[in-house]
Amino acid sequence: MPAPSSRAVINSSASHVFEVLRFVAEAEEPMGVTEISRLMALPASTVYRALVTLEEAGYLSRYQNTPRYEVGQMPQLLNRALFNRFHLHKASRPVLRTLAHAIGETVSLSVRLGWFGLRIGGAYGSNDIYHRDRLGEAVLLHDGLAAPAILAGLPAEERAGYRRFVTAHYPDRVPADGWDALESRLAAAVADGFVAQPIALAPGFQAAALPIRAGDGIALAAITANGPVLRPGELALPAALLAARDQLEAMVRAEPDLYRSPFQHIAADDIRLHLP
Score class of each variant (00 low, 15 high):
residue 247 Q to T: 06
residue 177 D to S: 14
residue 149 A to M: 08
residue 157 E to Y: 03
residue 225 A to F: 08
residue 135 L to G: 04
residue 209 A to G: 12
residue 254 A to P: 01
residue 131 H to Y: 09
residue 207 A to S: 15
residue 107 V to I: 06
residue 105 E to G: 14
residue 123 A to M: 05
residue 17 V to T: 10
residue 117 G to D: 10
residue 104 G to N: 13
residue 22 R to D: 10
residue 28 E to I: 03
residue 129 I to D: 14
residue 97 R to P: 05
residue 52 V to K: 09
residue 217 G to H: 09
residue 258 L to N: 04
residue 20 V to S: 09
residue 159 R to I: 02
residue 183 E to G: 02
residue 260 R to Q: 15
residue 134 R to L: 00
residue 88 L to P: 04
residue 83 F to A: 04
residue 141 L to H: 02
residue 173 R to A: 05
residue 210 L to D: 06
residue 200 A to G: 10
residue 250 A to I: 03
residue 58 G to Y: 02
residue 87 H to T: 10
residue 95 V to W: 02
residue 19 E to N: 14
residue 204 G to A: 12
residue 274 H to C: 11
residue 90 K to F: 08
residue 259 Y to C: 02
residue 181 A to L: 07
residue 198 P to N: 11
residue 70 E to M: 10
residue 67 P to G: 00
residue 64 Q to I: 11
residue 26 E to C: 12
residue 72 G to K: 05
residue 181 A to Q: 09
residue 135 L to P: 05
residue 157 E to S: 14
residue 66 T to V: 09
residue 14 A to Q: 10
residue 5 S to C: 08
residue 260 R to H: 14
residue 236 A to V: 12
residue 100 A to L: 04
residue 197 Q to M: 14
residue 261 S to G: 07
residue 119 R to H: 02
residue 90 K to L: 15
residue 211 P to V: 04
residue 273 L to F: 03
residue 39 L to Q: 13
residue 270 D to M: 02
residue 58 G to E: 01
residue 223 I to K: 02
residue 10 I to K: 14
residue 136 G to I: 06
residue 242 L to V: 05
residue 55 E to G: 06
residue 75 P to D: 03
residue 84 N to R: 05
residue 133 D to W: 06
residue 272 R to G: 01
residue 152 A to E: 05
residue 196 A to N: 07
residue 248 L to I: 03
residue 192 D to F: 05
residue 4 P to C: 13
residue 18 F to N: 12
residue 194 F to S: 08
